[in-house]
Design a protein around this nucleic acid. Structure first.
Lengths: 331, 331
DNA sequence: GCAATTTCGTGCAACCTTGCACATACAAGG
DNA sequence: CCTTGTATGTGCAAGGTTGCACGAAATTGC
């Protein structure tokens, strides 16, 4: 009953094919010095026995061909877009992706765990880690950071949306429609938010309404925000710029519950242009930062790193505003 | 420049502590036969050198203490609830969780990859694999299935919502309000959906409106559904029961866009009671199947398995209807 | 005080793979 | 026919850990 089905190893394949196990290894790695005949024979045996290499053993010796992706949570659908990009970039490569979610275990723990599992490299999304911690991690393992733009990284690559531009786009759009009292709901942690706030502030200054510069920060994406939104709406802003769509949806909900019309009483703008924005009940204006592009680029950078690049690289992508009813004050 | 910072190994810890490396291993595994003094000394060295065991090497020999979780996609927030449950169940155990997303790579590939990575066990969520495939996988590695209820599993455990009950709850609720023409939007793949459909059908029969039993199935959660929803709404059902909240939100969007009032013209009910249901713009009636409980139970079962249990176990959780405005026809 | 038992540590094989150094065979060049 | 070269395959160490078998010392029993 306890048929703990022994794994088929490279050795058994070798025996079956009647060659040395080194030869099998060569075929697997398609290394130099194997005749077509041998390759054929080995491949047949592999298929016959249903062999697949043990990643742990492989990782112990050289590369594991597994890369880790660390997300801050799994509730934000924008992260799904990023992952789509990562997956498709990995499509024609020998690499596999594995994901971890911070939030429960800490980000440092998770990163360490991934190093322990012999991952070849890590993509860290919207990390709350300090510049110092990132530098440290980057020294230990090839690292690409998404959504966090420290001044001058020396040990890792970054891919970011131009968050400053995001903020300015939104404010410019709202200002053009006459809005002056524009509030922002932001987030404490990733430094990308600081950039977005900067864009907001600059936009407000250009707009001549710097006096209303109201930024409210939450520690992280969570339900607890509600009370903050309540308080914010009581100040009666003409518009609210939310750091992500999910918060914007909540803001819409709250505005409606308080009898405010959208966009007449309060215009609302989100960020990320996730799928739900297009739903009629939301019809949310949002800044599109193609998550897929971001994921794609990050993966490209990481693979380049793994192939040997040593200098750091930074990619900045340009956002694009998608206007919908939630901010179309004058229809 | 290429300071590929060598990992600290168990050997260096041993040297630092002035003991054999086997002794260090004993401390790590807190095995029998270590004095407090030695334990102390080793732990100090571990901390001093910042040592952490190499999981790959560990996995090569015995258990890796990593379990894999396979999700069908990462867009459904209900999965986040499940993961929360899994994480908290893992909290006080030595196990770590790692996640993979099917959809790009196939589920079988992913499962195989996890076996290759020496994971100790796997939790498979809403898998589309056949009973046969599951049985096969279960024979190779400890396996718990969530959201898929094959007749009589022999090699794996299952945790499920009572989906039949879900369907009946919904129909009973709608029927009580006088609805007769109730449609259902379902999904092809996991067998759990068949159960939910069964509940719907039984409910419709009890309700005396079996003649309208309209079930529309999509291959998987995706945008493409839209056309199907259009067609369905044209049949003018009094209510639509959607297999998950996301589809319900889309249905709401479509109904609104077509000038239908909710719930007067068409009532809408979702499933999973995800966070967005409570938003004012959705206010979606939904069946609550505590994802957290499901994740918790699945993890418990898996750990029991890893600790040696051999008989299969099946857990069935009872759902609960949460009524909101989207189905409150007579306010 | 000697044997028996317990407690604490050490030695070493095994896990499965990679990748280099090496052996063999066969062809071509002189 | 011997030398050199190339193509193909084999042998083996190494990688970091676990866990068992085994010594050595300390404790106990009588």
């Amino acid at each position: 009953m306890k048929t703990k089905t022994k794994r088929v190893t490279i050795l058994e394949v070798a025996k079956d094919a009647g060659v040395s196990f080194s030869a099998v290894s060569k075929v697997l790695r398609n290394a130099y010095g194997v005749s077509d005949a041998l390759r054929e024979r080995v491949n047949t045996s592999i298929k016959k026995l249903g062999y697949s290499p043990n990643m742990a053993a492989r990782g112990l010796r050289g590369r594991s061909f597994v890369i880790g992706v660390v997300f801050p949570d799994m509730r934000n659908p924008f992260l799904a877009d990023i992952f789509t990009g990562i997956s498709s970039a990995l499509q024609r490569t020998p690499y596999q992706a594995v994901r971890g979610i911070a939030g429960h275990s800490s980000e440092t723990d998770l990163t360490q765990a991934m190093i322990d599992m012999q991952m070849d490299g890590i993509i860290l999304v919207s990390s709350g880690l300090s510049h110092e911690q990132l530098t440290d991690s980057g020294a230990r393992i090839p690292l690409v950071i998404i959504g966090n733009r420290p001044p001058a990284p020396t040990t890792f690559d970054t891919v970011n949306n131009n968050d400053e531009q995001s903020g300015r786009l939104v404010i410019a759009h709202l200002a053009k429609q006459g809005a002056k009292r524009i509030a922002m709901l932001s987030l404490e942690s990733p430094t990308a938010m600081r950039m977005r706030e900067r864009g907001y502030t600059m936009g407000m200054e250009e707009n001549g309404s710097a006096h209303f510069g109201t930024i409210m920060r939450a520690p992280k994406l969570s339900r607890g925000l509600y009370s903050g939104i309540e308080a914010l709406l009581e100040k009666r802003p003409e518009a609210v710029f939310c750091w992500c769509d999910e918060v914007a949806f909540e803001t819409i909900s709250h505005a409606r519950a308080n009898g405010l019309r959208i966009p007449e009483d309060v215009a609302i703008v989100g960020h990320d242009n996730t799928a739900y924005c297009a739903l009629d009940q939301n019809s949310l204006t949002s800044v599109d930062q193609s998550g897929e592009q971001i994921g794609l680029n990050a993966t490209k950078l990481l693979i380049e790193r793994l192939e040997g690049r040593r200098e750091c690289e930074q990619i900045l992508l340009q956002p694009r505003l998608v206007v919908r009813r939630s901010s179309t004050i004058h229809a």
